[in-house]
Simulated assay, not measured.
Amino acid sequence: MNIIEKRKTWFTISIIIILAGLLAMPINAFMGNGILNFDVEFIGGTVMEVNIGQDFDIANDIRPVVVEITGDENPQITRSGAQGVSIKTKSIDPETRAKLYNALKDKYNLDGMNDLLNVDDVSPTISTEMQLKALQALLVSSILMLIYITLRFKDWRFGLAAVLPLIHDVFIVLAVYSIARVPVNNSFIAAILTIVGYSINDTIVVFDRIRENKKVAKKGDLEGLIDKSVSQTIVRSINTSITTLVTITMLYFLGVPSIKEFALPLIVGIISGTYSSIFIASPLWYEFHKKSIAKTA
């Protein structure tokens, strides 16, 4: 495989996707939609609890009514008790609340005195402190991985070339959230941290093979060394990712909305992680190695 020869192509593909996501953020903000589609957990909202008093279907009966009246494309609707429903949306005014309840009242012939159990504003469940802690966890884990890989391979270039693709994967996932307006909720933080932990595995496998082949490779033939090492590990990397993707994809198509919101970023992250392990990490190591040689020449 000509991984190194076409490295500029791989880098360009990633840069285009990341830039598209970054550009979509201010565009969304200018249009009044926010840089990202933050869910109720991040920005707070309104919760309404209603006793339906009969069987109902959330996806086909409740959700369309809520979306139409509130304009919130991603309301959180769950069952409350045997025949009750809890509806969480972005903040809505009293007039909209009344309109929503009246629509449910007419649809299910509710008793206006007893069936509206509760309606109130709620604060964000994901605080600024929690967001900062998640960023700290991401930063600390990246630094520790950088140190560990550098010590294990006895070469800082391996460590840096392994950690930078993790940042690449995070930005790719952010680009998808920005462009596709995927709701950003508590699943987002868990998914990002999971992706970082998963993505590093394939990279280490490739780097291990590079280190082994380096002992017998022709001196100075870095391109041949990397292309050979990637070719020897690419089938394993792709098969591992496909196996994981099958499971996560089934969760996405068959799971409830909360599971789908967690599965989607994982799908994107796994694809991005496999791509970066093969087409980004090794070319980065090549660039760092080449620059080091040029400085000492």
Score class of each variant (00 low, 15 high):
5 E>A: 09
6 K>R: 13
7 R>G: 10
8 K>F: 06
9 T>Q: 11
15 I>C: 14
16 I>S: 07
18 I>Q: 03
22 L>A: 12
25 M>A: 05
27 I>G: 02
36 L>P: 00
42 F>P: 02
46 T>A: 01
46 T>F: 02
47 V>Y: 00
64 P>H: 08
70 T>I: 00
71 G>T: 12
75 P>K: 01
76 Q>S: 10
83 Q>C: 02
83 Q>K: 10
84 G>Q: 03
85 V>E: 01
92 I>H: 08
98 A>C: 00
99 K>C: 01
100 L>S: 01
107 K>L: 15
109 N>S: 15
116 L>C: 01
125 T>Y: 04
127 S>R: 01
135 L>F: 14
140 V>R: 04
145 M>H: 09
148 Y>K: 08
149 I>H: 11
151 L>Q: 01
151 L>K: 07
162 A>T: 08
164 L>A: 13
170 V>A: 14
174 L>A: 11
175 A>N: 05
181 R>P: 09
183 P>F: 14
183 P>C: 12
185 N>Y: 12
190 A>N: 07
191 A>T: 02
197 G>K: 13
199 S>K: 07
207 F>G: 07
210 I>E: 10
212 E>V: 08
216 V>Y: 10
216 V>E: 09
217 A>W: 08
220 G>A: 07
224 G>M: 06
225 L>A: 13
226 I>F: 05
227 D>H: 11
231 S>W: 02
232 Q>L: 10
241 S>N: 08
245 L>P: 05
245 L>M: 15
248 I>R: 01
265 P>H: 03
267 I>C: 04
270 I>T: 03
271 I>W: 00
274 T>P: 07
279 F>D: 03
282 S>Q: 05
285 W>P: 01
285 W>V: 02
288 F>D: 02
291 K>G: 07
